[in-house]
Computed example of a mutant assay.
Amino acid sequence: MTATEKHSLIEDAQGIAFGVSMASFGVLILTHLGFVTGQTAGLAILISYATGWGFGPVFFAVNLPFYWLGYKRMGLRFMIKTFVAVASLSVLTTILPSHIAFATLTPVVGAILFGFVTGAALMALFRHGSSLGGIGILALYIQEKTGFRAGWTQLLFDGALFIVAPGLRDLPTVAYSFLGALVVNLVIAINHRKDRYIAT
């Protein structure tokens, strides 16, 4: 696409709907297996495990402090799209478990599937000028300003979270969780390149 081509409203709506749906499915896999992850989603999941509160409301609340950065650094359009994506994910992750159940899902397969599904979800959201808030906003801002890939920023943050994770979950679960987070961030780091896809 050339720099003058922009996504239409319908294209943005479809892209964000796809991203939110796939991300919600990823959260379903994650929580079914008791995994943890990085970024604000990981923080929300850990709070959810510790308190018994639903992931959706916690995720929505955790993201609130990041909207100002999204507005100041990425613009009102990005902030609005991100707010819509986060709010939609918060609702969909509350509804989805009553419609999908897993009879068999091994940890290794679940971790890899979570990684690919969530990576595709985030790619769709990024390419339509949105994110799932939190560290995603910061990572995109850093990429815009410095060229340092968003996936690498998120991977560094995830690494810090996983340093403390063994105090909250058993080591095999943390190991599988790290595999899933690694797959997510490699998908983004390898594929999310502004020079290849510049429409917003």
Rank of each mutant, 00 (worst) to 15 (best):
I135V: 15
G129E: 10
S131Q: 03
G119A: 02
D158R: 07
T146P: 00
I135K: 10
G115W: 10
F148Y: 04
K145N: 01
G115C: 05
G119Q: 04
L156G: 15
L155Y: 15
F116K: 08
Q154I: 14
D158Y: 13
I112G: 03
L122N: 12
I112M: 01
W152Y: 15
Q143W: 07
I137C: 01
F157I: 14
L140F: 07
A124F: 14
A150S: 05
L138R: 08
L125T: 14
L132M: 09
A111P: 03
G133S: 03
A111Y: 02
D158Q: 07
A150P: 00
G115I: 09
F114H: 03
F148T: 00
H128T: 09
F157W: 14
L125M: 12
R149C: 06
E144W: 10
S131G: 06
L125S: 11
A150M: 02
G110L: 01
I137W: 06
I112R: 05
G129L: 09
L138A: 13
F116A: 15
V117I: 04
F148L: 12
H128C: 13
A111D: 00
A120W: 09
M123H: 08
Q154V: 12
F114Y: 12
L155P: 10
A111V: 01
A150Y: 03
G129R: 08
L132V: 00
T118P: 07
V117N: 07
G133W: 00
I135D: 11
L122F: 13
G115V: 10
L156Q: 08
G134R: 08
G151I: 02
A150V: 04
M123I: 13
V117R: 02
F157S: 15
K145V: 03
F126E: 13
Q154Y: 12
E144V: 11
G110T: 02
I142Q: 00
A121P: 02
G129P: 05
A124E: 06
A150H: 00
L138M: 14
F126V: 10
A120C: 12
K145P: 02
S131V: 08
G129D: 11
F157L: 15
G151W: 03
R127W: 11
E144D: 15
F114Q: 05
A150I: 06
T146F: 00
R127S: 11
A124T: 09
L138T: 12
A120D: 09
K145E: 05
A120K: 06
Y141T: 15
G119E: 04
G134I: 02
G110A: 04
G136A: 13
G136M: 05
G133Y: 01
E144L: 13
T118D: 13
L122K: 10
F148C: 01
G119I: 07
A121H: 01
G151D: 11
L125A: 08
G134P: 08
L125R: 07
A121W: 00
E144C: 12
L156V: 14
A124K: 05
S130R: 07
T146W: 03
I142P: 04
G136C: 11
Q154G: 14
A150E: 04
G129Q: 12
A124H: 10
F126C: 11
A124P: 06
Q143K: 00
L132S: 03
S131P: 08
L155M: 15
G129K: 09
G133T: 04
L113Q: 05
F114C: 06
G115E: 06
I142S: 03
T153D: 14
L132I: 06
G115P: 02
R127N: 12
